[in-house]
Simulated assay, not measured.
Amino acid sequence: MDIRSVDLNLLVLFDAMARLRSVNKTAEEIGLSQSATSGALARLREVFDDALFVRTASRMEPTPRALELAPAVHRVVQAIQSEILQQPSFDPLRAERTFTILTPDIGEVAFLPGVLRRMRQEAPRVQLHAVSRPRAAAAESLEKGEADLAVGFFPDLQRAGYFQQALFTSSYACVACARNEAAGDRMTLKQYLAARHVVVRPDGREHLLDRYLDDKGWHRAVTLELSHFMSLASILPGSDLVATVPQDIATVLGRLVKVREIALPFRPPQLQVRQFWHRRMQNDPANRWLRDVFYAVNRRDAGAGMPL
């Protein structure tokens, strides 16, 4: 028998008949008229080339073939109802799984602490895996399911096939060692460009501030280039270097080491921090829960700083 020739609705009818042994009761349960149910029963008999259910004085009795089929058909109908047609759900309190988050090291220090505190209460057995990817690889990681969410500044993901949600808008700050006598609280543009800069380019990529300065024709005197923002916590103290970093990094550095924030001699570009996910995950309950947590914890009003 070719499965393509079988109407699966007939299996629902068979299961009801095997349990109820009545055309009238079966019609009521599956929502068909008595005549439609009788017609469907005739098609079912044709498919299996067997009478299946025979009328007796009190009810419809199953044939040996029907008795043989009944357990298997019931399992199929139950599986379809409970596993295929069941609305997907996600229970964070009972879930045991790992979510992979694409974010640079700035995201690890700015976004994850609050999320972890929330997860400890809501999802104690859920794990997070934070990874950094080059800009070109972020889209591929989300598309292939290698990552569940990207959080941060990802302009390359603002395209078809990806959803996004704004978290907050931030900017840049210039910081130096608090004991750096060469750096006051303010610099002219000439002094800023001539200062000894340490520049952080995660994954070796150009960033928004680099493009902004290049468009202005301004070139800094770069003494050191790093791949990780948090390396500044050991580089800046005792040095005469200055670093222009996202405001969240300046805040974190100020909590770790003694730094001085220097007013920039220009208005820096704004950083639009968002979370991104591939359209495949739009209706996934687990991914939706993860997005809701990141949004609830990390969304900020305009002008608000990084939370403690």
Rank of each mutant, 00 (worst) to 15 (best):
112 L>R: 10
202 P>W: 06
195 A>F: 06
74 H>S: 15
138 A>E: 10
185 D>T: 10
190 K>I: 09
135 R>Q: 11
87 Q>A: 15
174 C>P: 03
170 S>G: 13
179 R>V: 03
163 F>Q: 11
141 S>R: 07
182 A>S: 07
143 E>D: 11
117 R>F: 09
190 K>F: 09
165 Q>F: 13
173 A>F: 01
181 E>H: 05
107 G>A: 12
93 L>V: 13
113 P>L: 08
88 P>C: 13
95 A>F: 08
209 L>M: 08
213 L>R: 02
138 A>N: 11
140 E>N: 07
118 R>S: 12
125 R>F: 14
145 G>T: 10
184 G>Q: 04
81 Q>F: 05
80 I>G: 09
77 V>Q: 12
142 L>V: 08
153 F>P: 00
136 A>H: 11
146 E>S: 12
136 A>Q: 12
197 H>M: 03
97 R>Y: 01
163 F>N: 10
96 E>N: 10
127 Q>K: 14
210 D>R: 01
206 E>K: 12
195 A>G: 01
92 P>F: 14
162 Y>D: 02
144 K>H: 08
175 V>W: 00
141 S>V: 01
210 D>Y: 03
182 A>F: 02
74 H>Y: 05
210 D>G: 04
194 A>I: 00
165 Q>I: 03
111 F>V: 04
74 H>N: 11
70 A>F: 08
202 P>M: 07
142 L>F: 08
105 D>R: 10
122 E>I: 08
198 V>G: 05
96 E>K: 10
151 V>R: 06
86 Q>I: 06
201 R>I: 02
138 A>C: 14
99 F>G: 02
121 Q>P: 01
157 L>F: 09
187 M>E: 03
74 H>D: 13
131 V>W: 10
88 P>E: 14
148 D>W: 04
206 E>S: 12
84 I>D: 05
91 D>R: 12
155 P>R: 09
73 V>N: 03
156 D>Y: 08
166 A>W: 04
140 E>Q: 14
79 A>Y: 14
172 Y>D: 00
206 E>F: 05
175 V>A: 04
142 L>C: 08
201 R>D: 04
80 I>D: 04
181 E>G: 01
196 R>S: 07
210 D>F: 04
205 R>C: 04
162 Y>M: 11
100 T>C: 10
101 I>D: 02
124 P>G: 09
77 V>F: 12
163 F>M: 06
93 L>P: 00
186 R>N: 00
140 E>P: 00
202 P>R: 03
186 R>S: 03
169 T>Y: 13
70 A>P: 07
108 E>Q: 15
128 L>K: 11
198 V>Q: 05
168 F>W: 13
105 D>N: 13
201 R>C: 09
152 G>A: 07
159 R>P: 00
119 M>Q: 10
189 L>V: 13
97 R>C: 15
120 R>C: 02
130 A>N: 11
69 L>R: 11
216 K>R: 15
72 A>T: 15
140 E>G: 04
72 A>W: 15
203 D>N: 13
133 R>D: 00
111 F>I: 03
98 T>W: 06
127 Q>A: 13
184 G>R: 05
78 Q>F: 08
88 P>R: 13
